[in-house]
Write a protein that binds this DNA or RNA. Structure first.
Length: 503
RNA sequence: CGGGGUGUAGCUCAGCCUGGCUAGAGCGCGUGGUUUGGGACCACGAAGUCGCAGGUUCGAAUCCUGUCACCCCGACCA
């Protein structure tokens, strides 16, 4: 079975690419480092967008849109950011081509732009340049804006979803009158939007907390992150929320008059998650049979496969399937499914064998599959299989058609919970405390998060990375304070931090 | 940008070293038939200017020169 997918144990990154391909999520495009997101993959992204957008709106944010192109001089205004992104920017230098017979198309040298335009790698600069015009008084604050868009970062090595030259994301950019309010915002986004989304929708447990100085975003005072652990023991940065202080307000001279009639620079945050989350979702739940998709984000919740050896049997089975589909679609809408109807597909690939059809929907990650054949119809019943327990083993037979809709609905909720629980158990099992350098070097080879004391210096972090490939992923909020000694230098430390090798 | 590799049918590749007559296989695709409760089989069929441009030769997928693209490994990253 499942010859199309390279087993995880054999080659994890090949397995990952097989899943992306076989679940029809995305393809490599002809453009280096860029992907074509196929309808299945995009449907997943749309579900993510909808859930996240709901969380942003519920916390007072609104959507807007800023230009794709950023004048190079804007990017230059904030030094750390300029330095951080300089090496990976796509640049527009001309505004016209020429078409000539015999010579074809070429760039018109006459059409050189006075100032090069950078394709946004992130939008802080152009947005803060704009905010200068929006902000004069404390009464104009806060500004709580988000945008859904694409960005380009000219990466050397790319992998579908995890790192592509162009990717889709959302970027929130907020402006506040006080430091406290901005910091509250950065924390709130991380905990109430990103953490909740990761855990409650993606069923992906995450560590939450600041990045170390060495890992923070260029231009930020500090960066908060959600950090997940993939099945191969490598960590994935799944989302970040930055407290930017007054760096961008100062770079773009955004001052406002506070209620004491004093001029003050505005306080900023920015935060984003991207299509990388799709990569994280795949590597958190999927197995050697294909994609496993948590029900809350599944483009299709239920597939019903009517079975029959001839026209007659098929007609009867398909009628029953359509009826069940209609019953599922008309179940009362609830919060779990985003107040949308359950999405049901009736499969009619009769030219393929049943086994092929079952395997196909396992590849695609449909959480629940229903089989209705002549044997079931005799008893007005059906067979229900759950994707998180693939193959024949997870099937329940003889479920009466009349009670199937409610049962399937509950099953979807249960699958969601069970995926989260399984992922959390794995993550917890792969998270362990280490106290000596020998232990550290040995344990890092087995992947997972190593909770170790660190002396807080950049030098130590760099040395650990050089020697082991591991970086500080997160300084978890919920890690208790305790006296200890740095795992490398033996210098005093008050808290363990999470080390891992990462994507 | 350094090191390695590959461009032949929609996909994966063989053929190239040692030039030769209609350029092959598997998968996929189409048609017909037998099948059908965990990835079926048979028959027939469609499909390639052999990455591109030169050169050598009676003759080039094959040899030579140039060029482009992509992949893998390193330095950078959501």
């Amino acid at each position: 079975m499942a010859e199309k997918i390279t087993p995880r144990a054999e080659d994890y990154s090949k397995w990952y690419l097989d899943i992306v391909k076989e679940a029809q999520l995305a393809d490599h495009s002809d453009v280096r480092g860029c992907m074509v997101i196929k309808p299945n993959g995009f449907a997943l992204w749309e579900k993510m967008q909808r859930a996240l957008d709901g969380l942003f709106k519920a916390t007072g944010h609104v959507n807007a849109y800023f230009p794709l192109f950023i004048p190079m001089s804007y990017l230059a205004k904030e030094e750390e950011m300029a330095e951080g992104f300089a090496k990976e920017c796509a640049v527009v230098t001309h505004h016209r081509l020429k078409a000539e017979k015999g010579r074809g198309l070429y760039v018109d040298p006459e059409a050189k732009l006075e100032e090069p335009l950078v394709v946004r790698p992130t939008s802080e600069t152009i947005i803060w340049k704009t905010y200068k015009n929006w902000i004069q008084s404390y009464r104009d604050l806060p500004i709580l804006v988000n945008q859904w868009c694409n960005v380009v970062r000219w990466e050397m090595r790319t992998r579908l979803f995890l790192r592509t030259a162009e990717f889709l994301w959302q970027e929130g950019h907020t402006a506040h009158a006080t430091r406290e309010e901005a910091e509250r915002e950065a924390h709130m986004i991380l905990m109430d939007c990103y953490r909740r989304f990761a855990e409650e929708w993606m069923a992906m447990p995450v560590l939450t907390g600041p990045k170390s100085e060495g890992q923070k975003f260029p231009g930020a005072i500090y960066t908060l992150c959600i950090e997940a652990l993939m099945q191969d023991g490598k960590a994935l940065q799944a989302g970040t929320s930055h407290f930017l202080g007054q760096n961008f307000a100062k770079a773009f001279d955004v001052q406002f008059l506070n209620d004491k009639q004093q001029l003050e620079y505005a306080w900023a945050t920015s935060w984003g998650v991207s299509t990388r989350l799709i990569g994280g979702l795949i590597m958190t739940h999927s197995d050697d049979n294909g994609l496993v998709c948590p029900p809350r984000l599944a483009p299709t919740h239920v597939v019903i496969c009517p079975l029959g050896k001839n026209e007659e049997e098929r007609r009867a089975a398909q009628a029953a399937a359509e009826q069940l589909a209609a019953a599922l679609r008309s179940l009362p809408r609830d919060e779990f499914f985003g107040y949308e109807p359950i999405n049901v597909k009736v499969d009619t690939m009769y030219d393929k064998q049943p086994g092929y059809r079952f395997a196909e929907y396992e590849l695609r990650g449909v959480p629940v599959r229903v089989e209705i054949g002549p044997k079931d119809l005799e008893k007005q019943a059906c067979v229900i299989g759950r994707r998180d327990r693939p193959g024949k083993e997870g099937k329940q037979v003889g479920i009466p058609l009349s009670s199937a809709p409610a049962l399937i609905r509950d099953l979807l909720v249960e699958i969601q919970q069970s995926l989260f629980q399984r992922a959390r158990e794995y993550r917890d099992r792969m998270t362990r405390a280490v106290d000596t350098w020998e232990q550290f070097k040995q344990e890092i080879e087995h992947g997972g998060f190593l909770m170790a004391h660190w002396d807080g210096t950049r030098e130590t972090e760099d040395r650990i990375q050089e020697e082991t490939g591991a970086t500080i992923r997160c300084i978890p909020f919920d890690q208790p304070e305790e006296a200890g000694q740095c795992v490398l230098t033996g210098r005093p430390s008050t808290k363990r931090v999470a080390f891992a090798r990462a994507y």
